[in-house]
């Protein structure tokens, strides 16, 4: 079947643009990303020992009361962060469960403070980062809450 001339140019151009934008472009970006940013390109994976235990960017469930807990209501549903005031409100419970003093826990939280406006704004922290720090710093307390 012969395609009318009116339609042949747009059809060919559609195919050309699909290959260019839909295939070549993402593949090239992937190549550059893997070489330049091997850590980021696969989702900023968090490791514990030699195991990948998730991504710093994606919230994961923490059930044990020795850990800080992420929110469970949020837009993405996987918000990895909590506000510092939220973190402070969790400290008494964690202190009870771990025996670590509130002061130590507050100091720990303060080490991980980030700001919503980069250098000002609301203070928040990454839950997984703080929990992994606690696990690595106080292995005696945390080791049997960690699987594997």
């Amino acid at each position: 079947m012969k395609i009318p001339e009116k339609f042949s140019a747009p059809l060919r151009m559609a195919l050309v643009s699909m290959v260019l934008c839909g295939l070549l472009f993402p593949v090239v970006v992937t190549g550059i990303a893997e070489v330049a940013f091997p850590y980021q390109s696969v989702g900023e994976q968090a490791t514990l020992g030699n195991h990948t235990v998730g991504s710093y960017l994606i919230a994961q469930e923490f059930n044990a009361s020795v850990f800080f807990h992420p929110r469970n209501d949020s837009a993405s549903g996987v918000d990895p962060d909590i506000t510092i005031s939220d973190a402070y409100s969790q400290i008494p419970g964690i202190s009870n469960a771990t025996g670590l003093s509130s002061a130590i826990l507050m100091n720990t939280v303060d080490k991980f403070v980030q700001y919503t406006m980069i250098s000002f704004g609301t203070e928040y922290m990454n839950v997984l980062k703080v929990n992994l720090y606690l696990i690595n710093t106080y292995p005696g307390i945390y080791s049997h809450y960690v699987s594997g």
Partner: peptide
Amino acid sequence: SVVLVGLGVPQSLNGYLLVKTVEG
């Protein structure tokens, strides 16, 4: 795209990754 990858946006064709979390 490259800047975004640097800022933490993934770019990979290796498939989704199934991991065991801290609590297993």
